[in-house]
Design a protein around this nucleic acid. Structure first.
Length: 259
DNA sequence: AGGACTGTTCCGCG
DNA sequence: GCGCGGAACAGTCC
């Protein structure tokens, strides 16, 4: 489910919930993680790399990747799809919830984690500091593939998933099927300029103790094109939002303002 | 019943 | 070797 903004929200939540506490006990709830050992220890903090959340506890680094349906929430009562629980001091318990059981939870030493992340060959972070227009031109300008699926390539830039990729093309007025190499420097200028404000807005709107799925109505209304098939374009007020398919994923666009 | 789904990796093809 | 598409992972929901 989560893209960069949602992972960042969960990072802030985990940071706040864990502050001043220590992990008392890790409790697997799913056979997938039955044998996973997370040693107890003082909670040291978090950072995010792309869509991955790193949680440092004691001498270990936990890497959480939520894939399609994972999320971490405060435990209040038993709920479906809980795959593991983190029991913290002072009666705080966090639940790792994941409907489709795609998510990853890895325990490593900080050195192993560093090696793991380097091995990923991921591109730079597009947020909070904007990547300059020239960077986008250099990284994408020679690719023959369509711009929307290109934006989702973690080896180019991290954190952008299927929703943000449609939203970015829309905000920049760029047709998602345009080949990267056909975009002008003005296109890249608009594109680079809309990324940080867009991510800021998603974080502001969605911040809270639990991130919500678009199709559950939570946060869904905040997007300008994603999921708005056959509705009027909120950008130009003229076009009707169209849904197409690109490399197996849904893309939404306004044929009037995205050329 | 069939298809879709906010991710990532791997495989095979040209 | 690269660029690209499709499959696979898994489980539900519409």
């Amino acid at each position: 489910m989560p893209e960069l903004p949602e992972v960042e929200i969960m990072r802030r939540n985990v940071d706040a919930w864990g502050a001043g506490r220590h992990l008392v006990r890790f409790v697997p709830k799913d056979p997938k993680w039955q044998d996973l050992v997370v040693p107890p220890g003082p909670i040291r903090g978090t950072f995010r790399r792309g869509k991955a959340l790193v949680w440092n506890i004691g001498d270990h680094s936990l890497l959480l990747h939520f894939r399609m349906t994972g999320k971490i929430v405060q435990w209040h009562e038993e709920r479906r799809y809980t795959r593991a629980c983190f029991e913290l001091s002072d009666g705080m318990t966090l639940a790792f919830v994941d409907q489709r059981r795609f998510a990853d939870l890895l325990v490593m030493s900080p050195v192993e984690l560093q090696r793991y992340l380097e091995g990923k060959k991921w591109g730079p972070e597009p947020w909070p500091d904007p990547l300059p227009p020239e960077w986008w031109v250099n990284r994408f300008g020679n690719l023959k593939m369509a711009v929307k699926p290109a934006l989702m390539r973690a080896d180019c830039v991290v954190g952008i998933g299927n929703i943000l990729a449609s939203e970015i093309c829309h905000a920049a007025g760029v047709h998602p099927e345009r080949r990267c190499s056909t975009l002008t420097s003005e296109d890249w200028l608009r594109l680079s300029g809309c990324v940080v404000p867009l991510i800021d807005r998603v974080i502001d709107t969605e911040s809270g103790p639990e991130i919500a799925y678009v199709n559950q109505g939570g946060g869904g209304s905040m997007f300008s094109v994603y999921g708005r098939s056959r509705k009027g374009c909120l950008r130009c007020g003229v076009g009707v939002v169209q849904q197409i398919r690109q490399s197996g994923r849904s893309t939404y666009l306004c044929p009037n303002c995205q050329k």
